[in-house]
């Protein structure tokens, strides 16, 4: 071969072509398409003739941003993030610290148990929760045996949100736990030993050593969980379909509904508003967690 490095480059491109093809069509072009369509009035009838749509420029965005249903879904999604993310992370961190604290018995069993929800199919999990949280289901009959009447978990607008968040937290804790555990295991033990000899209390060791050294893991988990809760769709869709009274309708669910009703342009504009928020928050989180 005369020019081995050129042949190598050709081979390399041949090797990445399948990935790049799928990426270009289903990510790059899709994202562009969504942006362009946000400025049009494309409806369900136009899907088969996507080039013949009328541009209405910012009209779709104005319509979406003044739509009470959309604004409510933004608020609901914010609630999901503000409650769900810290809750999931706190429980995940507590479990990781528990697993990493020198216990030896049953460690593998605990870890497998915490990890199981993550691999559980969400549809199956939601079906199980729906049954467990019906008015006279296992949860309420357990509460009744304790002498308290359980609420209408999924039917009461005030209770539906906490119930949906519980399922989301249950599903995501395992991811946080695994990542925090990996972070904890990378902290050298002699740092703790030295602090102990210097007379640092357990709480002081936690705040002065564990938390700062856990920062990379925390950063990763925060970003992952924020994105995951901002995109929340499966849990509310499956448990409540966004109800009762739209109390659990996230932005993703709103977008899906608009799409289902044939309002393609608003769906795309809504998803782009969401994308913008995700990007801004992502950048902010990276900044905040790095600078400190």
């Amino acid at each position: 071969m005369q020019q081995p490095s050129r042949w190598r480059a050709t081979t390399a491109w041949l090797f990445v072509v399948p990935f790049m093809t799928i990426f270009v069509v289903f990510t790059a072009v899709s994202a562009m398409l969504a942006l362009i369509y946000s400025f049009t009035d494309v409806g369900v009838a136009d899907i088969r003739r996507p080039l013949e749509v009328d541009f209405v420029w910012l009209q779709t965005f104005t319509r979406v941003l003044t739509n009470p249903g959309f604004l409510k879904s933004v608020w609901t999604t914010a609630l999901f993030v503000v409650i769900g993310v810290p809750l999931t992370m706190a429980i995940g961190l507590a479990l990781a610290i528990g697993l990493n604290s020198g216990i030896t018995k049953l460690r593998a069993v605990y870890r497998a148990a915490f990890y199981l929800p993550f691999i559980t199919n969400i549809v199956a999990a939601a079906v199980i929760w729906q049954y467990a949280f019906t008015l006279s289901g296992p949860v309420n009959s357990f509460l009744a045996s304790l002498g308290t009447a359980g609420p209408n978990w999924l039917g009461d607008p005030r209770m539906a949100m906490p119930t949906v968040i519980m399922l989301a937290v249950w599903r995501n804790v395992g991811t946080c736990m695994v990542l925090f555990l990996a972070g904890l295991q990378s902290i050298p033990l002699d740092v703790y030993e030295a602090a102990r000899i210097d007379g640092a209390t357990a709480w002081r060791r936690f705040t002065a050593i564990t938390l700062p050294l856990l920062k990379p893991a925390t950063l990763l988990v925060t970003v992952l969980m924020t994105v995951s809760f901002m995109n929340i769709f499966d849990e509310p869709y499956l448990l409540t379909k966004g109800g009762p009274l739209s109390s659990t309708k996230s932005v993703a669910l709103w977008v899906y509904e608009q799409f289902g009703q044939g309002n393609i342009a608003p769906a795309m504009a809504g998803s782009y508003v969401m994308l913008a928020i995700v990007v801004i928050l992502g950048v902010l989180q990276l900044r905040l967690l790095r600078v400190r």
Binding site: F19, A28, L33, I47, N231, F259, M268, Y272
Partner: peptide
């Protein structure tokens, strides 16, 4: 190979784009 940074950038981008923003245009395609 020339362009490997671009390809890797695409890998990272594909992991980060929220799916909500993609399923409608993917359906159109």
């Amino acid at each position: 190979f020339p362009g490997h940074k671009l390809v890797f950038g695409c890998v990272l981008a594909a992991m980060m784009v929220p799916y909500v923003a993609l399923f409608v245009p993917q359906f159109v395609i």
